[in-house]
Design a protein around this nucleic acid. Sequence first.
RNA 1: GCGCUCGUAGCUCAGCUGGAUAGAGCACUAGCCUCCGAAGCUAGGGGUCGCGCGUUCAAAUCGCGCCGAGCGCGCCA
Length: 558
Amino acid sequence: MIAPSEFESTLRQFITGIVMALPGIDSAEPPVVALESPRSRAHGDMACSSAMQLASRLRKPPVQIAQQIAAQIQALLPASALAGAIASVEVKPPGFINFFLSQEFLASVLQEVLKRGSDYGRIQYGQGKKAMVEFVSANPTGPLSVAHGRQAAVGDALASILDFAGYKVDREYYLNDEGTQIELLGSSLLVRAQQQLGRSAEIPENGYKGDYLIVAAKKWLEQNGEAIADDPDAQKKAKAFIVKELIEVIRGELERFGVRFNRWYPQSSLDEKEYLKETLELLKKRGDLFEQEGAWWLRSTAYGDDKDRVVIRSDGRLTYIAADIAYHRTKYERGYQRLVNLLGPDHHGYIVRLKASVQAMGFDASWLNVLIVQLCTLKRGSELIPMSTREGKFTTLTELMDEVGVDAARFFFLLRKIDAHLEFDLELAKKHTLDNPVYYIQYAHARISRIAENAAQEKISADQADPALLKSPEERLLLELMRNFPNIIELTARTLETYAVVAYLQELAAAFHKFYDAHRIIGSEPAVAAARLQLCVGVKTVLGNGLRLLGVSAPEKM
RNA sequence: GCGCUCGUAGCUCAGCUGGAUAGAGCACUAGCCUCCGAAGCUAGGGGUCGCGCGUUCAAAUCGCGCCGAGCGCGCCA
């Protein structure tokens, strides 16, 4: 019997061979054989639409072509590697060829799930290549917002999924610890400190007005003495203090959210060893950095940007792009072959620029995937909660975690396509009731745990079970869904769209609840009870694996 | 003005590289626990897939043009 993981590619090759041998097919233009999972199970477990695609080339009705192909499949199947895996083949108008998997093959899927356990679904797609997901990377100018939370949830899940798909993954946080915003932050703290000492001082325009700076100012004065406010280097010292302070705040928030980075990469370290300067020299040498009107520009228009971008200002100071270019050079030089960046929606113009700079340095820009994570709107019932970062009035990730918990927060952030606006309903996320989608999946997992407990008391063992007994539509559907899990991982690794995993888990949970309602484990005849228990254990394994990848807990009871 | 994202059921959204009667949850209606967790299951109503043209055997899906929503367009980051 063919291994479940080999099945689809083998079937595709098998059909391709048959199609190529059809009279009238030009081997110089090999047709691509399309396999799909039919929407309705009545159409089989797999379907092929090649006959319709070939209809105009062969000038024959699609059904006739499908029958021709199906006849060849029937003839060659017994001697092929797929023998035994496919139970039957049918042709249906307008020209589909539908395949029904055999009971034995589906049973072998369950064996595979149980054998591999927490590794079921792990695939070799990434071939061990180094991959990096850079995400959050928020300026350390305050607590993380809800928007950062969404990036954290998505980035962490993507990293886990890429790891599962066979990449060697690092999670990295690019730490913006210098530049205009950080200077502003430092002076804002200094002002707060002055105010603490009863002096009149005003937060600079565009400065940071959040209350957390008042708290930090008190701490700064307490730790260093009041004299530090009059130190000639007060501004510098204030800046260093607050950056360090806020990084720890952010690190703690992410830790609580269940996100750990392998590396925090400080922008300031790019200055060391003249790396930044050297990078700019490299660009000059390659001809994509040119001087005009006293400033140095990146010739990004050569790579599809609508205008060139200033890298070195006419006064000699560097723009943020300079540091970003150097930083991305390190990513390539550190040997990463798949780079994923998550950015907020205000950065989308930046994607072209970044890709241009990477190409200008001679790297392969296709290795770089920049994803825009859209904002999310919070609402409480029907009431929208407005958000504004600069004014210091915004809902923080911490407040969100306090209110709805980590599991619900992470799950809700993954619930939508990442480039679509997300409406986060706090009331819904808090509800421990049936309309909350988090609990639907977790409930299935917990329910199986209880069943397994009860079954053990009844002395039902899954060890010697015969999965061939799992013949009902509900049982078959569960087996077929389990078979598909590795495909979902591959799809997600390719498209970087986490929604597929969420949707898959919802589907698997739904299929389980239906099965549970239709069939009993305890109380059935012993052989059937054992087989069904084994099926339950398999479903629990896959649910657990999926939830783990999303960073959501899989509770034994709830 | 240019660019990006989006427009599918009353609401929130799926629909993967075009495919067989357009799906799910919520809300609404009616059922299912002397029985492994009812945080569950079953059934029902509800849609000109923003509009138009084009490509195709086949378009919610691809292309073009409108209409509408959101965001971005600094020698800021």
